[in-house]
Design a protein around this nucleic acid. Structure first.
Lengths: 232, 232
DNA sequence: ATCATCAAACTAGTATACAAGTTCACAGGT
DNA sequence: ACCTGTGAACTTGTATACTAGTTTGATGAT
C-alpha cells in the first residue's frame, strides 16, 4: 500500500491516462513516491481506481523522461535523483531558456507582458505569505509563459518532462531557503524584456536558473538515500 | 489496406512496442504513410502482426512529438507537415546543437573523434555512389555522436522526436538536391573541433543546419497536399 | 547449519473483450 | 427532391485475461 499518496479528483474531460499522469507527477515531485521506491502497476491501479492500461501508458511516458524506470518482467521504480541527468537537464534548460529570453527581448508587444507582470505580483504575495507550493507553481508558470509568447510551446512541453527532475530537488530544499530571490530574478527578467536588452535578459535568466546548483550539495548530504551515487 | 508500407523483421529482444515504433517511424519518414493520411489501430495491428496494445503505445509516443495526431473516438492521422512546428523544431535543434558543438570544441580527447572521422568518410562514399538513404542515416548518426561524446544523450533522444519532422522534409527533396555539401559541412565541423575553436564550430553548425530552410518553399509548392496551410 | 531445488507469487508485455463516442449512409416521411 | 432520424460500422479508451519471465522463500537433502 502506498501510504501518503495524494489523490485528486478526476476532471470531467480527462482521460484515464491524463488523470494518472497528473497524479503520478504530483506525487513524484512532492516525494510522496520516494526516489528509488518500487511502483506496482496493480497497486497503483487499485489505489487510483483505474485499470492497468492507463497506468501503464502513464508509466511509459514518465519513463521517457527518465523519471521512472521500467525493467521488463522485474518491476518499475521511481528513479533515484541522478546528478548527471540533472546536470544534463540543467544544460538543456539553460540553453533553451536563454535562447528564448533573447527572442523575447528582441521585441514583444506590450500586451503580452501583462500576464508575466501579473504572475510576478502573485509571486511576491506568495513569498510574503510563505505559500511555497503556490510560488513553485507560479515560477513554472512564468517560464511557460515566456515560451508561449515567443511561440515555443512545443519546446516547453518537451522540456517539462525534464523539469520534473528540478522540481523534486526544489521540494527537498523548500524549508531551508529564502524564496524572495525568485521574485527578484523574475523582475530582472521582466525589466530586460521591457528594455529590449537581450544581453541583460540572458544574464538575468542564467543567474536565475543557476542559483539552484549552489545548494545541491547540501541537500545531497541531507538525503543521501534519494541520490544515485555520483559520477562514473 | 496500407499499400506501400515497409515491413522489417522483428529483432529478437525487441518488445512489440519498440518494433512497431521502428516500423512506423521509417514509414512516416519515407512517406509510405502519407502526411494527413488516416491511421487505423486495427488495420496497423493486422498489417504488422501484433495486437492493438503495442500499436496504441507506439502511436501515443509518436503523438507526443506531434508526428501523429490522435482524436479520441474519431481517428488517428499522420500529421501534415506543419511549417510553424518545423520552425520551432529548427529553433530547438539549432539552439541545442550549437551549444553542444561549443562544448565539443572546448576540449575533446583525440580518441573520441575517431568515430566522427570514420562517419564522414562513409558519408563521402555514399554521396559518390548516390546512396541517399544511407547518407541520411550517417548524417543523423554524426549528430547523435556529437551529443554522445559531450554526454548529452538524453537531450538528443528528446530532440530526435522532432528530427522526424526534418527527415520527412529531407525525403521530399532527395531527388532534387546535391548532397556533397552535407559531407563538406561535417568536415568543417570536425575541423573546428580539432582546432578547438568554438566560434568556428558554432558557425559551421549553423550553416549546416540552416541550409535546408532555403529550399523548403520549392518543396512546399511541389507537394502542397502534404502541408498544413501556412501561418496563423 | 548450509546449500540446492522447486513451486508459488510476483513482475511487465500482449491479446482480447467491451464501453462509449463519432461518422455516415440509408430509409422514410414530408 | 429534400430533410430527418436511426442504426450499423467504424473510431479510440478501458478493463481484463493470459503469457512469459523473475524473484523469493520454503522445503528437503547433504
Amino acid at each position: 500500500m502506498v501510504q501518503g499518496m495524494i489523490l485528486r479528483e478526476r476532471y470531467s474531460r480527462e482521460t484515464g491516462r491524463e488523470y494518472v499522469l497528473r497524479i503520478l507527477k504530483e506525487n513524484i515531485v512532492r516525494l510522496e513516491l520516494e526516489p528509488g521506491g518500487r511502483i506496482s502497476e496493480n497497486e497503483l491501479a487499485s489505489e487510483i481506481g483505474v485499470s492497468r492500461t492507463p497506468i501503464r501508458e502513464a508509466l511509459i511516458e514518465l519513463s521517457k523522461s527518465k523519471i521512472v524506470e521500467i525493467y521488463p518482467q522485474k518491476g518499475s521504480y521511481v528513479s533515484l535523483i541522478d546528478w548527471d541527468l540533472v546536470e544534463e537537464a540543467q544544460f538543456m534548460r539553460l540553453t533553451l531558456e536563454k535562447a528564448v529570453i533573447r527572442l523575447a527581448c528582441e521585441g514583444m508587444e506590450e500586451e503580452k507582458l501583462k500576464g508575466l507582470e501579473k504572475n510576478v505580483k502573485l509571486q511576491q504575495f506568495y513569498v510574503e505569505n510563505g505559500e511555497t507550493d503556490e510560488l513553485l507553481e507560479m515560477d513554472n508558470q512564468f517560464h511557460k509563459e515566456l515560451f508561449e509568447i515567443t511561440n515555443k510551446v512545443h519546446i516547453y512541453k518537451l522540456m517539462s518532462g525534464m523539469i520534473l527532475h528540478f522540481d523534486r530537488l526544489r521540494t527537498l530544499r523548500t524549508k531551508t531557503v529564502d524564496n524572495q530571490y525568485v521574485v527578484d530574478d523574475h523582475m530582472a527578467i521582466l525589466d530586460a524584456i521591457r528594455m529590449k536588452d537581450p544581453d541583460k535578459g540572458e544574464y538575468a535568466m542564467d543567474r536565475h536558473l543557476t542559483r539552484h546548483v549552489i545548494d545541491e550539495e547540501i541537500v545531497r548530504s541531507k538525503f543521501p538515500q534519494y541520490f544515485k551515487s555520483k559520477k562514473s
